[in-house]
Nucleic acid binder design. Structure first.
Lengths: 208, 208
DNA sequence: GGGTCAAGCTGACATTTGTCACCCGGAGCC
DNA sequence: GGCTCCGGGTGACAAATGTCAGCTTGACCC
């Protein structure tokens, strides 16, 4: 479909769930002489399909999307050994996603709080083989390591669904007291006053 | 500063907290021959200042911004009897804001989920004196009217700060039982399983 | 005037949630 | 081997949360 790449033209697939933002970014990137947006996607599944079809140089993706998240997509692509490199664009509040993004082998991570110029330059650098991480986050990744044990994470995930201790106990084959205990330590670690607050802050930091 | 308006050119101030989105929208709007972005703002206060300085035809603003929200700004502008008309761009999830937006006298309300073309056409229609509301919301506004009493709303707002029943009782001069009771009825109305869930859904629908 | 309805308010009671002291097993010292 | 630490697990107890029946007051409608 698309002509063979002329020197340095970056072929991009863009995934972002808000149509207006997606459209704006796509048009803007297309204005750059060295960038072509070959497809756009509104969720993770569309993104995977578009990458499979177009084999772009870079997948530029948001994290929070309906269904499969941007991180899921990154992991999938990394696992398949695709040549496509992944550049994450996301919101500051969810900074804890960074560690997981790194584990998923993404090539770059920029914030929507940064000027658009940063997006374009990050795109070029990622295409050139560099790794790019928003400077505000490079440090944050270290001083806020995930303190939760796997079990605690699991319990907190149940809490986000609105489950009671009894529900969780049944679902995970635990005594109710145990459930309470884990949540209690999780609350202590997160400085939360109750289960819901704990689940929220854990989610906000990308630890779930 | 700006030259006198030639026929039909729309002078716009754009307020949106995410720099990248703000930049993208601004550039895109400026590409339209009949639109000029005279200033941009990253929060409500900057937006008010920009409107005061530039007296634009339209203020295009997000709702959720640090400090003063887009609705606060709209109210302020409406109260001052400014000629500037307000067009809200926001996220679908917070559909309940619509009613409050209407009360604040906004001229239009579009969703970030809609294609960008809608944004431009809404802008033109608002400038022409029409009122524009995203079709998905025109109906939603009616079938999901806020069921909360003022007191319940107040209590839920306290819950979002992480306050316990005892805390709230003291702060509002109520018996603890009363606090529990209000929250209980609020939970019933919202179909929530506990205080936090109730507070979250209420906030998500823009009822706080 | 009486009747009814909604909102504000309350205490007694039942349930859920959070805290604590403790047991077990494996990993890593020394 | 003995020691300590950490993650997983447990039940008894205390505190917070949720439910219910019921009391006022004011608005609205005969």
């Amino acid at each position: 479909m698309t002509p063979p790449q002329v020197g340095g033209v970056i072929r991009v697939v863009l995934a972002e769930d808000q149509a207006m933002v997606r459209g704006a970014f796509a048009q803007l990137l297309d204005l750059q002489p060295d960038v072509t947006v070959v497809a756009t996607a509104g969720d993770g599944d569309e993104a995977l399909a578009a990458v499979a079809e177009h084999r772009p140089d870079v997948l530029l993706t948001d994290i929070e999307m309906p269904g499969r998240t941007g991180l899921d997509v990154a992991q999938e692509i990394g696992g398949r050994g695709d040549a496509t490199r992944v550049l994450i664009i996301t919101t500051f509040a969810r900074s804890g996603y960074l560690r997981r993004a790194m584990d998923a082998g993404v090539a770059g991570y920029v914030l929507k709080d940064a000027p658009i110029a940063d997006l374009v330059s990050a795109l070029r650098r990622v295409h050139a083989g560099e790794r790019v991480v928003a400077p505000e986050l490079a440090m944050a990744a270290w001083d806020s390591a995930d303190p939760l044990t796997p079990r605690e994470r699991e319990l907190l995930r149940e809490v986000t669904t609105g489950a009671s201790n009894a529900d969780i106990a049944v679902r995970l084959n635990l005594a109710e007291g145990t459930v309470r205990n884990y949540l209690s330590t999780a609350m202590a670690k997160l400085g939360a006053r109750n289960r819901s607050e704990a689940a929220n802050t854990a989610r906000d930091r990308g630890w779930l």
